[in-house]
Structure formats: structure tokens, C-alpha cells
Design a protein around this nucleic acid. Structure first.
Length: 511
RNA sequence: GGCCCCGUAGCUCAAUGGUAGAGCAGGUGACUCUUAAUCACUUGGUUGGGGGUUCGAGUCCCUCCGGGGUCACCA
């Protein structure tokens, strides 16, 4: 069943489409011509105008773009088209082109149509550099109306917008429409690209090798999360979408690379929230012959570099807070931070039962029967919203860190840090565990711990242990959530705003 | 998954339980330098779906769908 107009506005567009066809004009021609972008045409005119207005007015251009504003008068048409470079105004006067054609355009051009316009450059009486059109080709007819947004440029140059397309659900479901009418949304994804490029440039400059590792994995690991499962028909093999890159990247250090990184997609079959999407972009980097102190330096330099690349300074505003990546980040141990903030020194409570009742005494609600590590983690979450300036939280309990090396002077803790900015976790790093005996013991302990909790049952990656037995250099590893980084750089407060196509439930009514 | 809130024209939003409206967009007409153009007239609705209460439901109740917020989950 081919598409039919669903409402009077679409019916009207469809009628115009048919009128064009009847007039022998293709609404979707195969060929385009273009001599200048909108921006180039305007700059060219302004430069020439500085020399001589007469010669500037002889500049011939052909520009293309989507009609974003129309003002049709009796015998003159004004409209703005927008291309990738910006906007330019078209002026079509009836005596500059065939009169019948003028009437046809007047009747059948709509907001949203793509057109190609040829003519000479000029400046209107109101002062706007424009194209005085003597030929126009419709490149693509818009059959559905884009949301209408009117704009006024204030005296101070800022833009006031009226009736913006703001329904969050519709914006995400029809991101193309969102992008088409909301330039600030387009800007988010330019910044996103910039963040990723800056990450790559920074890590490349430091001598790291960018690699790609499997997304479809026979054994998942490297994080505590439920995976998505899938199935290879011919191989008759159950497969998982990766929940982290960690175990594969560290295999590469065994292989002899000194530093590797990957930027890519992780998939976690968990709840969604303003900071969680089922698929998200992660950056993980591993470096031989260093430790978590080295990763702190790396993280500081990395955040500084990204911020500079995007903002031109080490400062930014996020949720109304000014954040500065210039100075060294604050460093606290997890224990002291929790003690300061909640008054609980978890070291005084060696069992989960004792710690749980101490937490409850402080009036903090906590799910029953959590293990001690998870209880401590829960306490850290109490502190999290207060960590506005860049902060390293160091030395995590061993129970929740099976891939990190123990602290020499305290086997109950590991050399691990997470770093927080704006009340949100951005990165996670450790001195990587490279002792295959210890690693094996941790894996076994972990599978024992989670046996009761079947949801979290984690398979043991024997091949990873095999790799480690060949000798893994001492190393540090760091993971950073790229989407959250983009949130930070764009001051957006939900992950969905920085994903082009965030996950939504399917909606079967085709409204 | 729990709790709270929301879903009305293409878009942005109104409407004590009592005839579903406005602005923009669209249509017709006027207008050869407009730029949130203006002026006149005007089309457009299964009020997310289904059920119920009521003389009467956009509004109250139940349920389903979708979204937002929040909590939980997330080594």
C-alpha cells in the first residue's frame, strides 16, 4: 500500500506534487547543480561589494538547499534556503522569470522543499545579501510538513524562536525532523564527532594503537551487567553482545602492544535512565608498564584536551556549575569520602550484616542482603551527587573489583579509581590484575558469590586466563563513557539527547 | 519492575463535568524589497486505544499503549 495523505495539510502537499507532475516538472529530478554554498555566495558578495557594488551585483551563483522560510507576495517571492553551510535568501521577482512559471512556483513551493536557485547576487533594501533568482529547479518535494518554527534575530544577534518542535518523544522518534528544524540539535552531534576525534587524536599522539575487538562474543565479561544474547544459525552457537572491551584489549597487551584503545559500542541488558541506554559508546584504553596513578595522569590530560578541543578552554558549565579541568583533579580514597559524607567508616564493619545495620542507623535506605562490597558501593552513591568538580575516588573494595590488582598494604582493597564530574561517574580505571593465579581465584570467588543471585551469574573466561599465563605486563586501564562526555560538553542532561537514535519502545499505531 | 505526572488540529498550547478553541502552518484573495511580513476570509479534530460512571466525559473511574520524572537494577 503506497503512502496516502493522512490529513488536509498532507493532502494539500500531495495536490501540489501532482500539479507539478502535470506541468511536466519532476518533483524528484536526478541531477543537481551547485556553484556555491550559501556561505560561500554571501562571502563572495561581501568581498566584491567592498571593491565595487556594481561588479558584486554581477556575480552569478547557483545555490541549493531546503526552503526554511517563505514570504510570498503578489509579484515577488522571498524565501530562505538552508544548506550545510547556513542560510541564504532568495528573491524571485515576476519580471525576472517567466510569469507562468512564477505563478507555478508561488502556488507549489512549500517549506521543506529542496530547491536549486540560479541568479545574481544582490543586497536587498533591508540589507540582506540575497540571490536574485532567474531560474529555479525543485530538487525534492516535501510531502509532509516539517514542524513550523519562526525565528527572529534580536538586536543583540541572538535568535528568538517561536513554536519550536519540542515534543521529546516525537523528536526522538523522528530525529530527522528534529534535526531538520532544530539547529542546536544538529550542533550536539557536531560536538559529538569532535569529542570522538579529539579522543583519537589525543590517544594517537600518546602512541596508543586504535583497535577493534569482537562485539559478538562467546563469553562476555569485563563488567557486571546482564548481556543481550543472540544466536548464530549456521554455527549453532549462542553468542553475547559485548558488555565491555576490557578482556580483549588486555589480551592485546599480552600480544606485545604497549598501548591500545578502542572506541565503540557496549550493550547492557539493564534498565534505562537519564544516564543509561541499552547501547552506548565506550572508550577503553590500556597501557603497559604503568599503574592507576599513570591512568590518573592520563585521565586528567585527556579531559583537559577534550575540553580544550571542544570549548577552547578548560572550563565549561554543566547543570549550572562551572567546572574546570585545568587544575589537578581532587583525590580522595573511597573510604575517607564515605566517612566524611555519611559518618560511616566501613572498615569498622567487617561483615555485611554489621555494615547494613550501620547504614540503616544513619537513615539510609538500602536493599536487604547485599554483599559488603555492594553496600559500600551504595554508600558511594550517596556521595556521588556532591562530586561536582573533577574528582578521583580511589581504592575500591576487592569484592566489586575482580580485575584490579590488590593494594600491597591492604588486600581488602584494590588499586582502582572512578572519576566523577558534575555529580556523575565518567570513568573507571585500575592497576590491572596480571597475576593469573589471583585472577583465577577472583573469578572462582565471583561465580561463588553470584551463584545465589542467578541473574548476575558471570561465566569464567578461560581463554583470558590462558592469555594471562603467557605473561601480561603490569599495566593500567581506563574506561570512559563517551556519551556522558558528550553530555558534559553540550550541557545536556539526558543521554538520549546526545544519541542520534536513542532506544524507544516500538509503537505500532502509525500516527 | 514500583510510584508520580503527561498524551487535545501538521507544530506549540487553551478549554468548573455542559456546543472542542487560539497562534503558527495550510487554503482563497490583496500586496514588486519582505524577513515572527501585513490585512481579509477560510479548511482542518475518532481529545493515544478500549471499556465504565453520568441526562451529559477532553475533564471522573478501570484497563491497555506510548512518553517524561523518580526509585530500584546497573563488580
Amino acid at each position: 500500500m503506497t503512502w496516502q495523505p493522512n490529513n488536509p495539510v498532507e493532502q494539500d502537499r500531495f495536490d501540489k506534487y501532482r500539479r507539478l507532475v502535470e506541468a511536466g516538472i519532476s518533483p524528484f529530478p536526478p541531477r543537481v547543480q551547485r556553484t556555491h554554498t550559501a556561505q560561500q555566495a554571501i562571502e563572495l558578495y561581501e568581498q566584491a561589494e567592498a571593491q565595487s557594488v556594481d561588479s558584486a551585483n554581477e556575480i552569478q551563483v547557483t545555490v541549493v538547499g531546503r526552503i526554511v522560510r517563505q514570504n510570498v507576495k503578489g509579484k515577488i517571492y522571498f524565501g530562505h534556503i538552508e544548506d550545510g553551510s547556513g542560510r541564504i535568501q532568495l528573491m524571485i521577482r515576476v519580471n525576472d522569470i517567466d510569469q507562468e512559471f512564477f505563478e507555478l512556483l508561488k502556488q507549489n513551493l512549500d517549506l521543506g522543499d529542496f530547491v536549486q536557485a540560479s541568479g545574481t547576487m544582490m543586497r536587498t533594501k533591508a540589507g540582506e545579501v540575497s540571490v536574485r533568482v532567474n531560474d529555479l529547479v525543485i530538487l525534492a518535494k516535501a510531502l509532509k510538513p516539517l514542524p513550523v518554527i519562526k525565528e527572529r534575530v534580536r538586536e543583540d544577534g541572538t535568535v528568538e524562536r517561536f513554536g519550536a518542535f519540542s515534543d521529546v518523544e516525537e523528536r526522538y522518534r523522528q530525529r530527522y525532523a528534529d534535526l531538520a528544524v532544530n539547529p542546536d540539535v544538529r550542533e550536539i552531534f557536531r560536538i559529538r564527532a569532535k569529542v570522538i576525534r579529539a579522543l583519537q587524536n589525543f590517544l594517537d599522539d600518546q602512541g596508543f594503537l586504535e583497535v577493534e575487538t569482537p562485539i559478538l562474543q562467546p563469553v562476555y565479561g569485563g563488567a557486571a551487567a546482564r548481556p543481550f544474547t543472540t544466536y548464530h544459525n549456521q554455527l549453532k552457537q549462542e553468542l553475547y553482545l559485548r558488555i565491555s572491551f576490557e578482556l580483549y584489549l588486555k589480551r592485546l597487551l599480552v600480544g606485545g602492544y604497549e598501548g591500545v584503545y578502542e572506541i565503540g559500542r557496549d550493550f547492557r541488558n539493564e534498565g534505562v535512565s537519564y544516564k543509561h541506554n541499552p547501547e552506548f559508546t565506550m572508550m577503553e584504553v590500556y597501557q603497559a608498564y604503568t599503574d592507576y596513578y599513570g591512568m590518573m595522569t592520563l585521565a586528567e590530560n585527556l579531559m583537559r584536551t577534550i575540553c580544550l578541543a571542544v570549548k577552547g578552554t578548560t572550563k565549561l558549565t554543566f547543570k549550572g556549575n562551572e567546572i574546570d579541568f585545568g587544575p589537578p583533579f581532587a583525590r580522595y580514597t573511597m573510604r575517607e569520602l564515605i566517612r566524611e559524607h555519611t559518618g560511616i567508616d566501613y572498615a569498622e564493619y567487617p561483615t555485611a550484616e554489621a555494615l547494613e545495620s550501620a547504614i540503616r542507623e544513619k537513615g539510609i535506605d538500602v536493599r536487604p542482603n547485599l554483599n559488603r562490597g555492594k553496600l559500600i558501593e551504595h554508600l558511594l552513591e550517596e556521595v556521588e551527587p556532591t562530586l561536582i568538580q573533577p574528582t578521583f575516588v580511589m581504592d575500591y573494595p576487592i569484592e566489586i573489583s575482580p580485575l584490579a590488582k590488590k593494594k600491597e598494604d591492604d588486600p581488602t582493597h584494590v588499586e582502582r579509581f572512578e572519576f566523577y564530574v558534575g555529580g556523575m561517574e565518567f570513568g573507571n580505571a585500575f592497576t590491572e590484575l596480571n597475576d593469573p593465579f589471583d585472577q583465577e581465584a577472583r573469578f572462582i570467588e565471583l561465580s561463588r558469590l553470584y551463584r545465589e543471585d542467578e541473574d548476575d551469574a558471570n561465566p569464567i573466561d578461560e581463554d583470558y586466563l590462558n592469555a594471562m599465563r603467557y605473561g601480561m605486563p603490569p599495566c593500567g586501564g581506563l574506561g570512559i563513557g563517551v556519551d556522558r562526555l558528550v553530555m558534559l560538553m553540550t550541557d545536556r542532561h539526558t543521554i538520549r539527547e546526545v544519541l542520534l537514535f536513542p532506544h524507544l519502545r516500538t509503537r505500532d499505531d502509525s500516527r
